[in-house]
Simulated scan of single mutants.
Amino acid sequence: MFVIAHHFIKEPEAFWASAQNALSSIPPHLKLHSVYPSSDLKTGTCVWEAPSAEEVQQLVDSILGTMSKNVCYEVNEEAAIGLPQKRMEEARS
Rank of each mutant, 00 (worst) to 15 (best):
M1G: 09
F2N: 05
V3T: 09
I4F: 11
I4W: 09
A5S: 14
A5K: 04
H6P: 02
H6A: 12
F8Y: 15
F8E: 15
F8G: 03
K10M: 11
E13L: 14
A14H: 12
F15K: 07
F15S: 10
F15G: 09
W16Q: 09
W16H: 12
W16E: 09
A17C: 11
A17I: 13
A17H: 15
S18F: 05
S18Y: 06
S18W: 06
S18P: 11
A19S: 15
A19Y: 11
A19I: 04
A19N: 14
Q20W: 10
Q20N: 13
N21K: 14
N21P: 04
L23T: 07
L23W: 05
L23E: 13
S24E: 15
S24R: 14
S25A: 15
P27L: 08
P27E: 09
P28R: 10
P28K: 12
P28F: 08
P28A: 12
H29N: 13
K31I: 02
K31R: 13
L32Y: 05
H33L: 08
S34L: 15
Y36K: 10
Y36C: 14
P37R: 12
P37C: 12
P37K: 12
S38A: 15
S38M: 13
S38H: 11
S39N: 14
D40K: 11
D40A: 11
K42H: 15
T43C: 13
G44T: 07
G44W: 06
T45Y: 10
T45P: 07
T45S: 13
T45A: 12
T45H: 08
V47S: 06
W48C: 06
W48V: 02
W48L: 08
E49C: 07
A50Q: 00
A50P: 01
A50I: 00
A53P: 05
E54T: 02
E54R: 03
E55F: 00
Q57D: 14
Q57F: 08
Q58R: 08
L59D: 00
V60M: 08
I63V: 15
I63S: 06
L64Q: 05
L64M: 07
G65I: 03
G65K: 06
T66A: 14
M67Q: 14
S68C: 11
S68N: 04
K69P: 00
K69A: 10
V71H: 10
C72T: 05
C72G: 01
Y73N: 03
E74L: 03
E74K: 02
V75K: 01
V75S: 02
N76G: 01
N76C: 01
N76L: 02
N76E: 03
N76D: 10
E77V: 01
E77Q: 05
E78T: 04
A79I: 00
A79C: 01
A80L: 02
G82I: 06
L83C: 05
L83D: 04
L83E: 04
P84D: 02
P84W: 01
P84Y: 00
P84A: 03
P84T: 03
P84K: 00
Q85N: 10
Q85F: 07
Q85E: 13
K86V: 02
K86S: 11
M88L: 14
M88W: 03
E89C: 02
E89T: 11
E89W: 00
E89Y: 00
E89G: 03
A91M: 09
R92S: 13
S93H: 07
S93A: 11
S93R: 11
S93G: 10
